[in-house]
Design a binder for these strands. Structure first.
Lengths: 119, 119
DNA sequence: CCATATGTACGTCAATATTCGTACAATACG
DNA sequence: CGTATTGTACGAATATTGACGTACATATGG
């Protein structure tokens, strides 16, 4: 596991909100919320590798995601347990809001920012 | 009522999260959540007037607060109904998290960033 | 070992955010 | 009207963010 993951108790609300206050990262969380681990490059498209690395860092350091190397890839997953423990209900409320179209991320259930599907 | 307040349907999640991703503004929301209208200058102290104006703008334009002139003062209030309608549960979850100490805003129930009290 | 695939690190660049001081506008109060 | 109070507008200084290209590190697979 990569370092720079804050402990659960170190996760601060303002950092999480700040991290999720970006449409691109909000979209990523929406995709990861499906569960399991996702390959870095499958979550977003049309963005340079270095830009992705930047966003993974923000999400990781704010405590929103786990990032784990696997082979030469890098798997991402939502820190759902920690987030639920620290901010009960927050994730559910956010996902509900995103899915209801209350953001620029997902008008009505699709994932317009990227093709997270594969095969 | 000052202009630049978005309609309820125009309030976007990422803008609200971005606005609340700042400890100072998160604190303001916490204070306003007590209900009613609050005088601009009573919500925060130790910050210049122009800086406050800036933060009111961010909160107003993201749809988090109402701002209403009254005499030579300016009253602020939380757009609770609109936020609840657009992002059901979000405000409650956030306030709960802040009050539980999951942010740098309020360690345990006090309001360390300002003396919002008055007589 | 060598080539390929996958990401990170670093430097750069433009845009945005945060803060402040000063000047100004509007209201209240005498 | 003149003064004080309250807040906005504007410009400046600085920090942070978001994006990218290039170079590098690591693992896979021949």
């Amino acid at each position: 596991m990569i370092t720079q993951h804050p402990e659960r108790e170190q996760i601060l609300l303002e950092n999480v909100l700040s991290a999720l206050g970006n449409p691109l990262r909000l979209h990523v969380v929406r995709v990861l919320a499906a569960g399991g681990e996702h390959n870095c490059s499958n979550v977003l498209e049309g963005v340079s590798k270095s830009t992705l690395t930047h966003h993974w860092r923000v999400l990781r350091e704010s405590g929103v995601i786990w990032q784990r190397p696997s082979g030469r890839e890098n798997l991402l997953s939502l820190r759902r347990e920690d987030l639920d423990a620290r901010f009960p209900g927050l994730l559910d409320v956010l996902l509900e809001a995103v899915n209801s179209g209350a953001s620029s991320v997902a008008p009505h259930g699709a994932q317009p920012m990227a093709d997270a599907r594969r095969g």
